[in-house]
């Protein structure tokens, strides 16, 4: 935008800017369209890997995708129980 455009434009934001911003947002969603089965597949495979080391219930794993302006984030929330043996040890220490 040049100087005279700036002076003569009464409102701060124009409808073309609104159009551009709306497009950018909708395209982030369109472009990141992932197969619907992806989250289920991820949940199953993560469960298999994590279960080797700690005890996890399948129902506890939350897998989701959070969308930001320029990137997407895979959010995985895995509450797990510590192995029983360790819990017992911990208990004796605190006593």
């Amino acid at each position: 935008m040049n100087l005279l455009d700036f002076i003569f434009r009464r409102n701060g934001s124009s409808s073309s800017e609104t159009a551009k911003n709306r497009l950018k947002l909708v395209l982030i969603q369109d472009r990141s369209s992932l197969p619907a089965s992806l989250l289920d597949t991820l949940r199953d495979e993560l469960l298999r890997v994590i279960s080797k080391h700690v005890k996890v219930d399948k129902g506890d794993i939350e897998v989701s995708i959070s969308r930001a302006q320029n990137y997407n984030t895979l959010v995985v929330n895995v509450p797990f129980r510590a192995p029983k043996r360790q819990l017992r040890k911990l208990a004796t220490v605190t006593e």
Binding site: D5, S14, S15, S16, A19, K20, L23, K24, L27
Partner: peptide, 16 residues
């Protein structure tokens, strides 16, 4: 319309 800021410009569209 582009001049008035009422239509996306060539630059806006090619950027997207």
């Amino acid at each position: 319309m582009v001049k008035r800021g009422e239509m996306m410009s060539t630059g806006d569209v090619t950027e997207i």
